[in-house]
Design a protein around this nucleic acid. Structure first.
Lengths: 290, 290
DNA sequence: AAATTTATGCAACAAATGTTTCATGGCCGA
DNA sequence: TCGGCCATGAAACATTTGTTGCATAAATTT
């Protein structure tokens, strides 16, 4: 009947949590959220802080397969021990294949993407943000994998400028929107190699209309960057693996939104607070633990 | 005669060390070298390992100005507490405002996000990818800003597993899909603070159904991580600015897709080539100039 | 509605913890 | 050499620790 030892005590706890009695769930959550205190302070101390019975901690430990609280605490302690894990990266560059070829791939990917971020030029982002700030309306377009970036930008900008931001193609075929661009507006197009015809069409329409065109792209020579007033560059191919990396584009999008927000000043802050208040009132969010 | 509380218990110890009796010096060195064990294990345990008398620890604590070993240990514990705030990042460099306050904000943001990426644990991603590989069907859910991550994952996975990947809530209300989860399937939920009720509902439904639950979250104690078979952690709050950072979540999503693809082997490669060929035939892409 | 199981708080328990006392042994100054 | 002083280990001490038995409350089944 003894459960086989799983990977990590915290994940064991997490897996078992939903099937536990109510009070045990409470203390389980408390332990997961305060695992450092769990390893350093006494069970009775924790019980007092969690507002629970000391016995609940013993029962919790037994419920997830340990002989008692002491054993659980020992497992948590060992997991937290600092020395065992390498402090930072620069590891195991050797074998290309092997038991953890996957892990190696991931580490290389993360490292490469981390290296790419500081190479993003900041100045153009700041300038583009000012253009967004001045625009009467903001259109956003991105296709295929870039659609996620477009939607994130749309979401964040709408938090404080709800009536002036719009995704291209939400209310029908793209072509309907392409004729709606005006000189006082801004159009953001996101794309990288291989470039879609759709994104190029949007960029051209924006240029023809006289609207401010902002391109988030992987190259200055990208077709949607032609005629753009602002080009924000990132490295899509910098990381290993099959799919082009989007972290750079996401980072640019979020920086753009952040600076535009800060340019908005008190008015933007007020509108964002209103939006958040409305969402809270609609109980969209799970209330934070008290 | 009480010494004033110095900066750090470890430096107090180091300063007082030379003027202590021989045995207390030994014990003091042992504590300095094993301070993690000093905070977690019992005094007698340490004494046994150090080959010293338990009483020596009490005397050591008193010798450097504490009321006893308990108080010294408490000080060491507080010093080691991890969550004090962000572990590093030299933020607020120089001027807070000025002509390029915006550029500074962007640079800080990019730097912080770049620093966060290598801290993403890779092993859980590899394990989750294997679970995805084995799943008969894959569901993906993410709300509000996390929707962009969900859609990116959906897009990339569908490139090579078109019939088995689906966003929760595309074909009607979410609730319709929640009843469709099966034990042989996998459900991916993305979310961070503040957590939406919708994402928690999906996670709970997945757990109840017996499907493999994969949570991409900012904390082990996130409500959608409860009962999850795999939790992939990233730092959402690591970067300055108002909006939580999504680069970590995006990087995880792309790594997950990349590893899952590589697990798919020749079959996945073949299907992706088919998809690409179809898109090329439909002239979705702008032909590369050459 | 009654019976049965389960969950939970309380209190008592034995074991372990940190501390203190005491006896011993070594050291230095008279 | 003697006598005071301090360092040190062993054992006894009062607390505190994690645990468990028990009675009650809640939930579930019959």
């Amino acid at each position: 009947m003894a459960e086989p030892a799983k990977s990590s005590p915290l994940s064991e706890l997490r897996i078992a949590l939903p099937s536990l009695p109510l009070r045990l769930q409470e203390v389980g959550r408390f332990v997961a959220a305060n695992d450092y205190d769990a390893t350093t302070r006494s069970m009775r101390d924790l019980a007092a802080e969690a507002g629970a019975d000391p016995a609940a901690f013993t029962r919790l430990a037994k419920a997830i397969g340990y002989s008692g609280w002491d054993e659980l605490r020992a497992a948590l302690t060992e997991e937290r021990r600092p020395s065992q894990t390498a402090p930072f990266s620069g590891r195991t560059r050797g074998r290309r294949h092997g038991p953890n070829a996957d892990v190696t791939l991931i580490l290389d990917k993360l490292e490469a993407e981390a290296a790419g971020l500081p190479r993003i030029p900041a100045q153009p982002i700041a300038e583009a943000a000012r253009a967004l700030h001045d625009a009467k309306r903001i259109w956003i377009a991105g296709y295929r994998s870039c659609r996620s970036v477009a939607e994130l930008l749309n979401y964040e900008l709408r938090l404080f400028r709800p009536e002036q931001v719009q995704l291209v193609g939400t209310s029908g075929p793209d072509d309907l929107d392409l004729g709606a661009f005006r000189p006082s507006e801004a159009v953001i197009v996101i794309g990288f190699l291989p470039y879609t015809h759709a994104s190029v069409r949007v960029a051209q329409a924006a240029h023809r209309s006289g609207a401010t065109l902002i391109a988030i792209a992987d190259s200055l020579s990208a077709p949607m960057a032609e005629g753009a007033d602002h080009v924000l560059l990132f490295e899509a191919a910098s990381s290993p693996g099959f799919f082009p990396s989007l972290t750079g584009a996401i980072a640019i999008a979020q920086s753009l939104a952040a600076v535009t927000f800060s340019l908005g000043g008190a008015a933007a802050k007020k509108r964002l607070e209103n939006t958040e208040a409305r969402l809270t009132a609609a109980s969209t969010y799970v209330p934070e633990k008290g």
